[in-house]
């Protein structure tokens, strides 16, 4: 009696059961992953955060050699009105000497206006160098005090633990002196 209630495994039944277990298990795993995704994705930036308006900046009051800091998407954006000496210093460096090689021409749409996100590419501190009294580092650009990264007059990393140049945000000139960031 016991045998008939529990038939000896035929090869046929065995593969069908294996298949069903595999298929059900696989579907369950996929289903769980699909169900978990909304939980994970809910932690990504929400629509209102993404919709944060772009920032318009009037450059007229910024004299040569001066710098201003504006906010964009919660981060500081550095705008420096570079002197000819700044630009020349940046262009004189051979690219091979740079940890993250990028010509100065690629870093500014108008060479006298350098516009960058003021967040150190190492671990996110705000580098010093915007205010007249600030330390500007060994390359007369910016200096990040957190772990000692030095950026040059094109905002390129020259020395210290930061791996990349300061990031250039998307921006465009609406007029000669009005720029929209974002």
């Amino acid at each position: 009696m016991a045998e008939s209630a529990n038939p000896a495994p035929s090869r046929d039944g065995e593969t069908r059961r294996d298949f069903l277990i595999l298929a059900a298990g696989g579907l369950g795993a996929i289903g769980t992953a699909v169900a978990v995704w909304p939980l994970i994705d809910s932690m990504n930036p929400s629509a209102d955060v993404l919709a944060l308006a772009s920032t318009e900046v009037d450059l007229t009051p910024v004299e040569e050699g001066m710098a201003i800091t504006v906010m964009w998407r919660g981060n500081p954006v550095f705008i420096r009105h570079r002197t000819p000496a700044d630009i020349e210093a940046a262009r004189a460096v051979p690219l091979e000497e740079l940890p993250d090689p990028e010509p100065d021409e690629a870093r500014a749409k108008k060479p006298e206006w350098l516009i960058m996100i003021g967040v150190c590419t190492h671990l996110g501190c705000v580098p010093k160098g915007q205010k007249p009294g600030d330390p500007k580092g060994d390359y007369n650009g910016w200096f990040c005090p957190c772990h000692g990264s030095h950026y040059d007059t094109a905002g390129r990393i020259r020395k210290g633990p930061a791996p990349k140049n300061l990031v250039i945000p998307p921006y465009e000139y609406l007029t000669e002196t009005l720029v929209r960031i974002g």
């Binding site: 932690m43 930036p45 929400s46 955060v49 998407r73 919660g74 981060n75 996110g124």
Partner: peptide, 23 residues
């Protein structure tokens, strides 16, 4: 962000924004 390839994505996900903020 040091994690190769997906580092930036992970950090944005951790923050729920583009920097440490209310989220």
């Amino acid at each position: 962000s040091a994690i190769p390839l997906v580092g930036e994505t992970i950090v944005t996900w951790l923050w729920g924004g583009f920097t440490v903020g209310n989220p």
